[in-house]
Design a protein around this nucleic acid. Structure first.
Lengths: 153, 153
DNA sequence: TCGAGATAGTTTCCTTGTCAATTAAAGGAG
DNA sequence: CTCCTTTAATTGACAAGGAAACTATCTCGA
């Protein structure tokens, strides 16, 4: 009967708490978006395209940290909802471009308001000063760890 | 040609930065675990069962914030890898119990070491003081927002 | 004690992502 | 110019979780 070696608790890891809070925030946001018939990934793509020129899927994939296959399917879903349009590129016969439809453009501000409210609902749990500290710490980590996603522009 | 109404940048949301960092940490951890042939969810279940009595899937589902269906399938996968065993409960004819196999028990400390290293690799980007501040802020949010998962014991 | 309802797990279907294979079009070396 | 290689996007197979239907068992009230 060999005793089990000691193993550190999950709660000792900062990553554990980070994931717990992040998951709660994201999940709550997903629930709000669901009322509008949109998922978080769909919102993310729509926001990326808002007030931008038609953009090829490959650029969006890079910017969003998804594979091209994922963007293809995401785009298919949004096209099915008439929020997005796909058109062949004029310059390059292989390429496509994605752009929001008028309905898509119109929806983005609504969704953005939901995003604002969701963020507020959670981070109002902290004081203004605490929020600023949290923001600084997270941005410091992103910077020092080079956790960047290529920007669209 | 109506101009697009102003929409707040994603980067204004603390949730955005939280998710970015959390995703990086989790993804890097997943990559480390993959070398051992285990996923993050699998590790999570194994850790929950380590040095504990055989436990019913329902308790694990509650503790891990998963549905019972998800635990069933997770367990199936781990059983396929001979890291977990499922046995009918003696007390209740409906119930099952899950417990790590000897191989599973032996693997946990290895995986825990990976978890420790991964957490360190990321959060060493901060000073000890910054880490403590981050931990305090996250735990404060969990507390104030009641973002709890039922503990196993 | 027996029938109704609650409970434990599993299974099925759906969603959404990755990875690998595939198709089509560019682009460059000879 | 003609291959050969690279690049863009899509497609198909698979992974992993949620929701709800389903099965088996338990429990309690009359």
């Amino acid at each position: 009967m060999t005793p089990t070696p000691p193993v550190s608790e999950l709660t000792t890891h900062l990553g554990f708490w980070l994931r717990m809070v992040s998951n709660h925030v994201s999940h709550a946001f997903a629930a709000r978006l669901a009322d509008k018939g949109v998922t978080v990934a769909e919102w993310s793509l729509m926001r990326a395209l808002y007030d931008r020129e038609p953009t090829p899927p490959s650029r969006l994939a890079d910017a969003m940290g998804l594979t091209r296959g994922a963007v293809t399917k995401l785009a298919d879903r949004l096209i099915g909802k008439a929020l997005l349009a796909r058109r062949p590129s004029e310059a390059d016969g292989r390429a496509q471009t994605l752009a929001l439809t008028a309905a898509g453009v119109a929806l983005v501000p609504e969704l953005a308001a939901l995003a604002d409210r969701n963020d507020a609902a959670f981070f109002d749990l902290l004081t203004a000063e605490e929020r600023q500290t949290l923001r600084d710490l997270l941005m410091r980590m992103v910077e020092r760890g080079r956790m960047t996603t290529p920007p669209l522009d």
